[in-house]
Nucleic acid binder design. Structure first.
Length: 878
RNA sequence: GCCGAAGUGGCGGAACGGCAGACGCAGAGGACUCAAAAUCCUCCGUGGGCAACCACGUGUGGGUUCGAAUCCCACCUUCGGCACCA
């Protein structure tokens, strides 16, 4: 049974099901969301992060697309030429898992999901240009991934190397560093292990400085996202310093051989060259390539090998966790400190990472907490070379746990800047000044150099999975790794593949693997790794500008016309991964001459999660905190607290869902789902429905310009004021600040004002009333397009509502004849006074001082000062 | 530990140095109804008072200012990110 309302009731109750279906059909047929050609200077590119086609739209999707659609519809009314496209991030593991489970081809499964989701998109009423749809799993899209890969290979930006990489056993594939969270896989949450494999990388580190510096250009990005990216890139300024190795057999305390050390050096990276004179040992990563030659043949060989094996066995995340016991092993060898010629013992240490810096560290226990703990554990000397600045020297004294820095008694490292000591001719210098001085001293002697180090690592793009873009490489015994020639692209995924759940299905497809070498024609072997799906999403915004191009990924003209994306919207969870990769791709494409922009996304809105209460699995009750309040968590399958958008659409309609989503919280904050809140929005739309039905007579007299209204009586003028103020507020809240909740509040206030006007017992001024209703519909349209389209038509206004301009307000109507000012005495509210709005400061002051209550609170004192804030208040200080 | 964001009624939130609590939800009372739902009207920060009104009030403590939720300093709490990065 449907709950269709009888016709007679339609004026009282908004029949959302039939109205929404009607307008969705109209929009589809009229192609009202089509992208304008030749956008020119008015172009505006609104983009929301495209979804993975799971087959089901969830509330998070509804939120991000409701935000984007409100912006798109609003800006079209503002005269912008809007590009608002959509597509699907369609490669990835769920399709492959479905293939294993149901023995369907991932492509068939994915296309079915896409088709289902498009229906759901339409039911939400999003104004998307589906003719520009980009689907990453289709060969006409991923062909260009392969083309970019080859371009990157030509530029030395794609390369293959053996490396210790993150392996997820559940997903049966490797992961990029960015995809490891707290030692676990970003998608399945299982522990990541380390494997040594030959893998393809993109050299994102070549762009580290640009990715860092250009963050400063992104003035319309949230500061928090920029900071997260800065931290991820992790720039450190420091120095590389060479320590020469002493020959085998050198004993501690023995004089360093006059002829110096061997020719072999160990290079370290440090951010604290000012502490070089305090070096008392050195530590190497167990994986350091020199380890073997240091110990082979010595009595330390067996022990060292055992230590290396032990560390290698350890879980990498645990090994590098703070608080982890520092483990070391003395190699029996020494190196020479280049600044003072002292011999320092060389240790292996579990906390030194081969991937960062040079894999070797100079250790200064007096001024580095980690080195300090290590030194105390292994009874290595501590040498103080920096003393705290005395408090009197201007500026605060540096902090120190220990009152006196004595190597024997100190309990913690002193890590702050200070004054150099025990550092030869650098003594007495502030340590910050000594940094460059020591580096220059080293550089002059060829012992070291200034350098910049990043935490950012190259992007590992190989995946041992079927459902991704095949890496376009053919291995040949004679020619090595040969790229597939551009005219032979795309390398398409084979259809006849077995999905067994173990290993990469591509390795079992002889048709796919066995191909001739493009260079010499001999039998070759095709690469079976596919690309990380983040490659797909790193440039999809560029495909939308020219989606049907079969000769190029996109034409430069189209990119120049539309790029950058003016407003990008998506979840904060992509603050590092996707946004960093997209920025990298854009810069590479710029260097390839394909685009003119440095940055892809002008303005970024990171929307918050959608949360709900949930049932605690242990108690079977609503989960509550210690105060008995219901706990909130992100809507998820595992907690079972998701709300199905389709059910909400069925019950309340898409407009209600959209309105609630935008009204209940600011876009960047968490959105707490409440049925009561949804109901409130539904009530509001019904109120608008009835209100407009009750004023249809007046609508035919509605002027298009606010300035055309007659002044009328006080009631009329008040409504004119309210409607003009609402237009002004929604204009700035939407246009400048993207505050959807306060925009909707302003529209509700206008609705209340019209209702108040109607319930006042006087004759209605039909132009004023009609104009107010007309404006109400226009203001509400970007948030609730279906109901406003229907009411616009019912009211008999000209044209379709989506073709209308956003209304202009009349500044004159915002000026009132009289204003009420708050009267304060010494900053406390004491009274009110009504004055003509054009009253002079002197008149206002006089009115304030004449006020009885002001006099009373002055208690006979003479006012010392009177502050007049026009239109707001008067503060009498006395 | 470091970096960042945020702390405002019973709840979501508003207020870009100028009347704190807009708008909405929940709640209370009333109207309509046989009744319920829906709808409409009124009230709704705390304490005192019959009332007009008074005092207090934006995490805590200071400061700047005629005036601070808003700016500055210190601290507390919550959330998010990073975390032995040399």
């Amino acid at each position: 049974m449907t709950t269709e309302q009888p016709r007679a009731n339609n004026e009282k109750h908004y029949p959302h099901t039939e109205v929404e279906a009607k307008w969705q059909k109209t929009w589809r047929e009229k192609k009202t969301s089509a992208t304008p050609v030749d956008p020119g200077a008015d172009k505006y590119y609104v983009l929301e992060m495209f979804p993975y086609p799971s087959g089901r739209l969830h509330m998070g999707h509804c939120r991000v697309y409701s935000i984007g659609d409100a912006i798109a519809r609003f800006l079209r009314m503002r005269g912008k030429k809007v590009l608002h496209p959509m597509g699907f991030d369609a490669f990835g593991l769920p399709a492959e898992n479905a293939a294993i489970k149901h023995q369907v081809h991932p492509g068939d499964w994915t296309e079915k999901c896409i088709s289902d989701m498009k229906d759901q998109f339409e039911r939400m009423g999003f104004s998307l240009d589906w003719e520009r749809e980009a689907v990453t799993c289709r060969a006409d899209y991923y062909k260009w991934n392969q083309w970019f890969f080859i371009k990157m290979l030509e530029r030395g930006l794609a390369y293959k190397k053996a490396a210790a990489i993150n392996w997820c056993d559940t997903c049966q594939t490797v992961l990029a560093n960015e995809q490891v969270e707290q030692g676990n896989c970003w998608r399945c949450g299982n522990a990541v292990t380390i494997r040594n494999l030959e893998q393809w990388f993109f050299k994102i580190t070549d762009y580290a400085d640009q990715l860092l510096n250009d963050l400063d250009k992104l003035s319309d990005w949230p500061e928090s996202v920029k900071i997260m990216q800065r931290n991820w890139i992790g720039r450190s300024e420091g120095a590389r310093v060479k320590f020469r190795l002493l020959p085998t057999g050198f004993q501690q305390g023995e004089a360093v051989p006059a002829a110096g050390a061997t020719d072999e050096t160990i290079e370290i990276f440090t951010t604290r060259p000012d502490t070089l004179f305090g070096v008392t040992f050195m530590s190497l990563a167990p994986e350091h390539p020199l380890v073997d030659s240091l110990v082979t043949g010595s009595d330390k060989e067996a022990g060292a090998k055992e230590f290396v094996a032990m560390v290698a066995q350890e879980d990498r995340f645990l090994r590098t966790a703070e608080g982890k016991e520092k483990e070391g092993f003395f190699t029996g060898r020494y190196a020479v400190n280049p600044v003072n010629g002292e011999a320092v013992p060389i240790y292996l240490a579990n906390f030194v990472l081969m991937e960062y810096g040079t894999g070797a560290v100079m250790a200064v226990p007096a001024h580095d907490q980690r080195d300090f703990e290590f030194a105390r554990k292994y009874s290595i000397p501590v040498k103080v070379v920096i003393s705290p600045i005395p408090g009197s020297a201007g500026g605060p004294p540096a902090s120190s746990v220990d009152e006196v820095l004595d190597s024997a008694t100190m309990t913690a490292a002193y890590v702050d800047p200070g004054i150099m000591q025990s550092s030869a001719h650098f003594d007495g210098l502030p340590s910050e000044d000594a940094k460059p001085a020591i580096v220059s001293w080293l550089a002059e002697r060829g012992l070291g150099e200034k350098t910049i180090q990043y935490k950012l690592r190259d992007w590992l793009v190989s995946r041992q999975r079927f459902w991704g873009t095949p890496i376009p490489i053919i291995y040949c015994d004679d020619c090595g790794a040969v790229p597939v020639p551009a005219d032979q692209l795309p390398v398409t995924l084979p259809r006849d593949v077995q999905f067994t759940g173990s290993g990469n299905p591509l390795s079992g497809s002889s048709e796919f693997i066995n191909v001739p070498c493009p260079k010499c024609g001999k039998q070759g072997r095709r690469e079976t790794d596919t690309m990380d799906t983040f490659v797909d999403s790193s440039w999809y915004f560029l495909r939308y500008v020219d989606p049907l191009n079969s000769d190029e990924p996109f034409s430069k003209n189209a990119a120049d016309a539309w790029m950058p994306v003016d407003q990008y919207i998506g979840g904060i969870e992509h603050a590092i991964l996707h946004l960093l990769y997209s920025r990298f791709f854009t810069k590479v494409l710029r260097d390839l001459g394909l685009v003119n922009v440095d940055e892809p996304f002008q303005r970024l809105l990171a929307q918050g999660m959608v949360t709900n209460t949930y049932i605690d699995k242990n108690t079977g009750q609503l989960a509550v905190d210690e105060n008995g309040r219901p706990k909130l968590a992100k809507m998820s399958k595992s907690l079972g607290n998701g709300v199905d958008p389709l059910e909400i659409i069925d019950q309340y309609g898409a407009d209600t869902a959209r309105l609630f989503i935008l009204f209940a919280a600011p876009a960047e904050k968490e959105l707490e789902w409440t049925d009561e809140g949804v109901n409130g929005c539904s009530k509001f739309l019904n109120r608008v429905w009835r209100l407009v039905h009750g004023t249809l007579d007046a609508c035919e007299f509605a002027p298009e310009e606010a300035a055309a209204l007659e002044p009328g009586n006080a009631n009329d003028r008040e409504l004119q004021f309210q409607v003009n103020r609402a237009i002004q507020r929604v204009g700035t809240e939407m246009g400048d600040r993207h505050h959807f909740n306060t925009s909707i509040a302003a529209i509700m206030e206008l609705t209340n004002a019209i209702q108040t006007y109607l319930s006042s017992s006087h004759e209605f001024e039909r132009m004023t009333l009609g104009f107010s209703v007309r404006a109400l519909l226009l203001l509400l349209y970007p948030f609730a397009p279906h109901i406003t389209s229907e009411l616009w038509e019912k009211a008999g206004f000209d044209g379709a509502i989506e073709e209308q301009s956003f209304p202009a307000y009349d500044p004159k109507a915002l000026e009132k004849d009289e204003v009420e000012l708050a009267l304060q005495v010494n900053g406390k509210n004491r009274s009110k006074v009504v004055v003509p709005s054009k009253a002079s400061k002197e008149d206002i002051e006089a009115a304030a001082l004449a006020d009885e209550r002001v006099q009373q609170f002055l208690e006979g004192r003479q006012p010392k000062k009177v502050i007049v804030v026009p239109g707001k208040l008067v503060n009498v200080v006395g």
